Amino acid sequence: EPELVFKVRVRTKDGRELEIEVSAEDLEKLLEALPDIEEVEIEEVEP
């Protein structure tokens, strides 16, 4: 069974934007590691 992958769009407080694809596990780590995120948009990517 393929692992869930999420497309994550992040905007930081200083206005930088970042778009990455991460696994569910990595997404959890990412959110814990970035306390200064202003906006996060997450969508599931079809395998």
Score class of each variant (00 low, 15 high):
Arg11Lys: 09
Glu38Leu: 13
Ile42Phe: 07
Asp26Arg: 05
Arg11Gln: 03
Glu17Pro: 02
Asp26Trp: 09
Leu4Asp: 03
Arg11Glu: 01
Glu41Asn: 10
Val22Trp: 01
Asp14Ile: 01
Glu41Phe: 13
Arg16Ala: 06
Leu34Tyr: 11
Val5Ile: 15
Asp26Tyr: 07
Ala24Leu: 11
Pro2Gly: 10
Leu31Ser: 01
Glu38Val: 12
Ala33Ile: 09
Ser23Asp: 04
Leu31His: 02
Pro47His: 10
Arg9Lys: 08
Ile20Phe: 15
Val40Met: 10
Pro47Gly: 09
Glu44Met: 13
Leu27Trp: 05
Arg16Gln: 09
Arg11Phe: 02
Asp14Lys: 03
Glu38Cys: 10
Thr12Glu: 01
Lys13Cys: 13
Glu3Lys: 13
Gly15Glu: 00
Glu38Asp: 10
Asp26Lys: 07
Asp36Ser: 05
Glu38Met: 12
Arg16Val: 10
Pro2Cys: 12
Glu46Lys: 13
Glu25Tyr: 08
Glu46Phe: 13
Lys29Asp: 05
Leu30Lys: 01
Arg11His: 04
Leu31Pro: 00
Glu43His: 12
Glu3Ser: 05
Leu30Glu: 01
Lys29Met: 08
Pro2Lys: 09
Leu30Asn: 00
Glu46His: 12
Glu44Arg: 13
Glu21Ala: 06
Leu4Phe: 11
Glu3Gln: 06
Leu18Met: 09
Ile37Asn: 05
Ala33Tyr: 09
Lys29Arg: 10
Ile20Cys: 13
Val8Lys: 00
Glu19Thr: 14
Leu4Lys: 14
Lys29Ser: 05
Asp14Ala: 04
Val5Leu: 10
Glu28Trp: 14
Glu44Leu: 15
Arg16Pro: 01
Ala24Ile: 08
Glu19Cys: 09
Pro47Leu: 11
Glu3Asn: 07
Val40Pro: 02
Ala24Glu: 05
Glu1Cys: 14
Val10Lys: 00
Lys13Phe: 02
Glu38Phe: 13
Leu31Gly: 01
Pro2Leu: 08
Glu3Asp: 10
Lys7Gly: 02
Glu19His: 11
Glu43Pro: 03
Val10Gly: 02
Glu43Trp: 15
Val10His: 01
Ala24Gln: 08
Glu32His: 08
Glu44Ser: 12
Val45Trp: 09
Pro35Lys: 15
Thr12Pro: 00
Val40Thr: 03
Ile20Val: 07
Leu18Ser: 03
Glu32Val: 07
Glu43Lys: 10
Glu25Val: 10
Leu30Arg: 01
Ala33Gln: 08
Arg16Leu: 09
Ile42Tyr: 07
Glu19Ala: 06
Lys7Ser: 02
Phe6Cys: 14
Lys13Thr: 07
Arg16Gly: 05
Leu30Gln: 01
Lys13His: 05
Glu38Ile: 13
Val40Ile: 13
Leu30Met: 07
Leu27Tyr: 04
Glu28Gly: 10
Phe6Pro: 05
Glu41Thr: 13
Glu32Met: 12
Ser23Arg: 12
Ser23Gln: 05
Ile42Asn: 02
Val5Tyr: 05
Leu34Met: 10
Leu18Val: 08
Glu39Ile: 15
Arg16Tyr: 08
Arg11Ser: 03
Glu28Asn: 09
Ala24Asn: 04
Arg9Asn: 03
Val10Phe: 11
Glu25His: 12
Glu46Asn: 12
Glu28Leu: 13
Glu25Leu: 10
Asp26Gln: 12
Glu43Gly: 07
Val45Arg: 08
Leu34Cys: 12
Glu19Asp: 06
Glu21Leu: 15
Ile42Asp: 02
Glu19Arg: 11
Pro47Lys: 11
Pro47Asp: 08
Val22Leu: 09
Glu17Ser: 10
Thr12Lys: 03
Glu1Ala: 12
Val10Arg: 00
Arg9Gly: 00
Pro47Tyr: 08
Ala24Phe: 11
Val40Ser: 03
Glu3Gly: 06
Glu38Ser: 10
Leu18His: 05
Val10Tyr: 11
Val45Ile: 12
Glu19Gly: 02
Gly15Met: 01
Leu34Ser: 04
Arg9Ser: 03
Ser23Ile: 07
Pro47Ala: 09
Pro2Phe: 09
Val5Lys: 14
Leu27Phe: 05
Glu28Ser: 09
Gly15Ile: 00
Val10Gln: 00
Ser23Tyr: 08
Lys7Val: 10
Glu39Ala: 11
Glu39Cys: 13
Glu17Val: 15
Val45Lys: 08
Glu28Asp: 09
Val45Gly: 06
Leu34Phe: 13
Lys7Pro: 14
Lys13Trp: 01
Asp14Ser: 06
Ile42Lys: 03
Arg9Cys: 09
Asp36Thr: 04
Lys29Asn: 06
Glu38His: 08
Leu34Ile: 12
Asp14Thr: 04
Glu1Ile: 11
Glu1Leu: 12
Ile37Gln: 04
Val8Gln: 00
Asp14Val: 01
Ala33Glu: 08
Glu44Tyr: 11
Leu18Pro: 00
Val40Gly: 02
Ile37Met: 06
Leu30Trp: 11
Val8Leu: 02
Lys29Trp: 09
Glu19Asn: 10
Lys7Tyr: 01
Lys29Pro: 02
Glu21Gln: 10
Ile37Leu: 09
Pro35Phe: 15
Thr12Met: 14
Glu1His: 12
Pro2Ile: 08
Val10Pro: 00
Pro2Val: 07
Asp36Gly: 07
Glu46Gly: 10
Glu43Gln: 10
Glu32Ala: 13
Leu27Ala: 01
Glu46Arg: 14
Val8Pro: 05
Glu38Pro: 03
Asp26Phe: 08
Phe6Asp: 11
Val40Gln: 02
Pro35Val: 14
Glu19Pro: 00
Thr12Leu: 15
Glu19Trp: 15
Ala33Gly: 09
Lys13Gln: 04
Glu25Pro: 07
Lys13Ile: 07
Glu38Trp: 14
Val45Ser: 07
Glu39Asn: 09
Glu32Ser: 11
Asp36Ala: 04
Glu1Arg: 14
Glu25Ser: 13
Ser23Val: 05
Asp26Met: 10
Lys7Ile: 13
Ser23Met: 07
Glu3His: 06
Arg16Asn: 05
Ala24Ser: 07
Gly15Tyr: 01
Glu1Phe: 13
Ile20Gly: 01
Ile20Glu: 01
Arg9Trp: 00
Glu46Gln: 12
Asp26Thr: 05
Leu30Tyr: 08
Leu27Asn: 00
Glu32Leu: 12
Ala24Trp: 13
Leu31Val: 03
Lys13Val: 06
Thr12His: 06
Leu4Thr: 07
Ala24Pro: 06
Glu28Val: 12
Leu27Glu: 00
Leu34Val: 05
Arg9Met: 01
Glu1Lys: 14
Leu18Cys: 15
Glu43Thr: 13
Gly15Gln: 02
Ser23Thr: 11
Arg11Pro: 00
Glu21Trp: 15
Ile37Trp: 13
Asp36Leu: 05
Leu30Ala: 03
Lys13Gly: 04
Glu39Lys: 10
Glu3Ala: 04
Gly15Pro: 00
Glu3Val: 06
Ser23Trp: 06
Glu19Ile: 14
Phe6Ser: 11
Leu27Thr: 00
Val45Cys: 09
